[in-house]
Amino acid sequence: MRLAHGLIVLPDLVAGGPKSVDRILTPLTAIQAARALDIALIDISKTYGRQAARNVALFMEYPGLID
């Protein structure tokens, strides 16, 4: 899939493909879209733990709300 600015995303799994997808992110509202990274970091924290979310934020140099 090519995104609007040219980035190409190659997913490992797709809904309806031969392998089952274990979770799907819910679509974001316009207000949530502005906070998409915070929402993703919260999901990472819930799924993989607080330290994993901190590592992702650090890798991205993001001063997000992970505490």
Rank of each mutant, 00 (worst) to 15 (best):
R2G: 00
R2I: 00
R2S: 01
R2K: 02
L3P: 10
L3D: 06
A4G: 00
G6V: 00
L7T: 03
L7A: 06
L7G: 00
L7V: 00
L7I: 04
I8R: 15
I8G: 07
I8K: 06
I8L: 13
V9E: 02
V9A: 12
L10R: 01
L10W: 00
L10P: 01
P11R: 15
P11F: 12
P11W: 15
P11N: 14
D12N: 05
D12R: 15
L13S: 08
L13W: 08
L13N: 05
L13A: 11
V14H: 06
V14G: 13
V14I: 10
A15Q: 04
A15F: 09
A15G: 12
G17Q: 02
P18V: 15
P18T: 15
P18E: 13
P18H: 14
K19W: 15
K19F: 11
S20Q: 09
S20R: 14
S20I: 14
V21K: 08
V21Y: 06
V21M: 11
V21I: 04
D22H: 00
D22F: 11
R23E: 03
R23V: 08
I24V: 03
L25F: 02
T26Y: 01
T26A: 00
T26C: 00
P27N: 09
P27F: 07
P27Y: 10
L28V: 10
L28R: 05
T29E: 11
A30T: 06
A30C: 12
A30E: 13
A30M: 05
I31M: 08
I31Y: 09
Q32T: 04
Q32N: 05
Q32F: 02
A34P: 11
A34V: 13
A34E: 15
A34S: 14
A34W: 15
A34Y: 06
R35M: 01
R35E: 11
R35P: 12
R35Y: 08
R35F: 10
A36V: 12
A36C: 10
L37F: 14
L37T: 12
L37A: 09
L37P: 12
L37R: 03
L37M: 03
D38S: 01
D38A: 09
D38Y: 02
D38K: 00
D38V: 02
A40F: 01
A40I: 01
L41K: 02
L41E: 04
I42N: 09
I42K: 10
D43C: 02
D43I: 07
I44K: 03
I44A: 04
I44T: 00
I44N: 09
I44Q: 01
S45Y: 09
S45A: 10
S45G: 10
K46Y: 06
K46I: 02
K46T: 04
K46S: 06
T47A: 08
Y48R: 04
G49S: 09
G49P: 11
R50T: 04
R50F: 03
R50Q: 07
R50D: 09
R50H: 13
R50N: 12
R50W: 07
R50Y: 06
Q51M: 10
Q51W: 05
A52R: 14
A52P: 04
A52F: 15
A53L: 10
A53K: 13
A53W: 03
R54G: 14
R54H: 13
R54W: 13
R54E: 15
V56I: 11
A57K: 09
A57Q: 10
L58P: 10
L58F: 08
L58R: 13
Y62D: 07
Y62P: 12
Y62W: 08
P63Y: 03
P63C: 12
G64V: 08
L65N: 14
L65F: 11
I66K: 09
D67R: 06
